[in-house]
Write a protein that binds this DNA or RNA. Sequence first.
DNA 1: TAGTTGACATACAGTTGGTATACTGAAATA
DNA 2: TATTTCAGTATACCAACTGTATGTCAACTA
Lengths: 210, 210
Amino acid sequence: MSETLAQQAYKDLKQRILEGTIKTGDLLTERTLAIESGISRTPLRAAISRLQKEGVVSRLTNGTLMVLPVTVEQLLEIVQVRRLMEGAAAARAAERPMTTALNQSRQIMQAYVEGKDVAFDSFWMDDDAFHEAVAEAADLHLLPAMLREMRSIARRCTITRTHDRFAEQAAEHIAVIDAIEARDPAAAVAAMEAHFDSVRSRFLGWLARP
Amino acid sequence: MSETLAQQAYKDLKQRILEGTIKTGDLLTERTLAIESGISRTPLRAAISRLQKEGVVSRLTNGTLMVLPVTVEQLLEIVQVRRLMEGAAAARAAERPMTTALNQSRQIMQAYVEGKDVAFDSFWMDDDAFHEAVAEAADLHLLPAMLREMRSIARRCTITRTHDRFAEQAAEHIAVIDAIEARDPAAAVAAMEAHFDSVRSRFLGWLARP
DNA sequence: TAGTTGACATACAGTTGGTATACTGAAATA
DNA sequence: TATTTCAGTATACCAACTGTATGTCAACTA
């Protein structure tokens, strides 16, 4: 089952944006992108249409294509929504068997607590794995895709990248996993909510810096 | 001494942006604006160039003209800078004779404390008058122009317009004026700083709302 | 096999910004 | 006073872009 040119272009473009090779606020032109991809504008436009629907790129009123900046307001809203959703997911996960993915995530997080130092994108992937493991342990099948969507937005916000207290975040993740393992839903939701409260106050603290 | 067409266009455009008739994020086209103003593109471009220098509009990389959005980060920075500058101005003003403008501003602010209700733009002008009166009472001749610049930026940020506790702000203004009248520099700077701290925490509180 | 559909390539029209050129009136200069 | 210069302005031209239309081809279905 081969991918269409449009699908390939979509994946390629999205990856470049998530990696930061193409930056939020950058303007794109269909012809240039089409030439770079070795395809014509038609499938390229289909790929762009899809990215538009996901809020990754936006057409300005004159048709110009821009990689959509993500505002602080949007970022804070995502933190709030995820706090609700992932808190509930952690409580559900605590009522179900412990998973291999959660165990693996805990080991990875332990390394950060002990001082492991990596680039933002590496930590982001381990962070991805943690949140995905919780959602899957909760048997919530729509949640992983929703998380991916929201996390892809958050990743594009410039403040997110100022966020470098990996050891603290790792410790918060471990607290969630421990509560899930202990089959304590109340502790699990509290730990997950504390994690997001902590994320939020870091963002606000960055904003409020003198 | 008559104004050039470029100067007229500049003033008109800027006013429309400050009033919110043209919104931040809007795209502008030279031809449309020129036709609306009844002039050719050439003086219109001179007006735009001036607005560009002031950070009111921006050229995207493809030449598209956009009314520059003002981010929350910029707004908070302006609040910080003004806290420093206007705190110092209030202290200086407290070492100088009380002025008519400060007395007038106090009366106007008293009406707000007593419940006067107006639209944002009306309050904004009274707010302008207060801050300008303090700067002039401080004999700081460069400060008013700098304030106008920063306030014109702040005015264009969408959060600024969510700010509707006029009575509270008016009471803070009165505290500054009272301290100036009492010739108490320490109290004046403290009152002005408290005012900006209050403004800042309102913005942050709006951001942090659940 | 003929018809339909999805994917794709290419062409065309309209709009925009950038830039060049021409014009005009006022001020300066010889 | 006549001429020149300069600032301000109007207009024309070109390249580049998006939106849309049209044509082609391969795969699928009846």
